[in-house]
Simulated scan of single mutants.
Amino acid sequence: MLNLPDRLGSRLSGAQFANLHTFVAVARHLSFSQAAQELCLTASAVSHRIARLEQALALRLFERLTRRIRLTAEGERLYQVLQGLEAQLQEALQPSTEEVSGALSLYVRPSLAQHWLVPRLADFQQRYRQVSLDIRTGNEPVDFRTRPVDLALLYGHGEFPGLASQLLMDERVAPVCSPQYAERHGLIDHPGRLAQCTLLHDALAWEHAAFDAEWQRWAGEQGVQQHLPARHLTFDRSDLCSAAASHHAGVAIGRQRLVQPLLDQGALILPLGGFSQTAGQGYYLVHPPRERLPLRLRVMIGWLQVQVGDG
């Protein structure tokens, strides 16, 4: 198997480092023209730099398709190596101080950001005053090549192909609705009466999920699929489902870490019993694979783990 660091050392001269920088830009955008705009070069100049790099390494780094390009297996490996070197360089250039510093971008699902992460951020700011934290939210799949994101906090089953991931905290789910809605439909301890209800769906519960995936998973585990009605409302956030449920619009699948405050306030109840755990379901920390994470990223992961332990 090719050892990229050895190959780089034996085949590259100092003049090739500009070509490596160009390669990283092209690999990030998977576009010669977009890389050219970033580097203030012509697309022809970018193409020539890549050709010279491929010749020096005796490797083909990109596959040229009809209207796009993609990395070859060796190109992907080189890109991962250079990303790791870039992170190490950024850490090495930090001021020599015990205080962690630098910019850090965290991508989070909107519901979790609003109801779990944001209320805790003051503690992070007090502990790490020299870290500039940028929180971005969204439901679309995160592309670490094209978005300036260091770490993502995602809900799902832990399947993130090509990325490193670790479970931060698990999640338990159960149907929730307002007390008034449960009484109106005689729903307490009667799952068969779901057929008379409106179901509230988070249509983007996790990547590639069907619009009713959470309800189908819960109903399958409980053996009550036959009672699920066709009548529904869909949202793109779990907390909007819970908010609609608290205002008598229907029954939602509540995630305990998000809906517990509404349960404590009495705005929601658990009409069909307590929360249940689905194997592997939870919130995962996701990032590109690296041999060693930058210090600021290791600090953020450690802090998030402490927050889970603190409840």
Rank of each mutant, 00 (worst) to 15 (best):
V142Q: 08
L168S: 05
L61C: 02
S242C: 15
G75A: 08
Q222V: 02
G14Q: 11
H248Q: 14
Q90L: 12
D264Q: 13
H29C: 13
S165W: 01
L89K: 02
I69K: 03
A174H: 05
L112S: 08
L154T: 03
R237D: 12
L61A: 06
L71M: 14
A195P: 02
W218D: 04
E54G: 06
A25R: 07
I135P: 07
P288N: 05
A182G: 12
V149Y: 09
L104R: 02
R172T: 15
A27C: 03
A25H: 11
V46P: 12
L4A: 09
L89F: 07
T198C: 15
V142S: 08
R296N: 05
N139A: 09
A113T: 03
L154C: 03
G156T: 02
A36Q: 09
L39N: 12
G138D: 05
P288Q: 15
S105Y: 02
I253F: 04
T22Q: 12
Y284R: 00
Q265W: 00
L285V: 11
T66R: 14
A164M: 06
L30Y: 03
Q125C: 03
P229C: 10
E63T: 12
P288I: 05
Q281C: 06
W215H: 11
V299Q: 10
E63A: 14
E54I: 04
R67W: 07
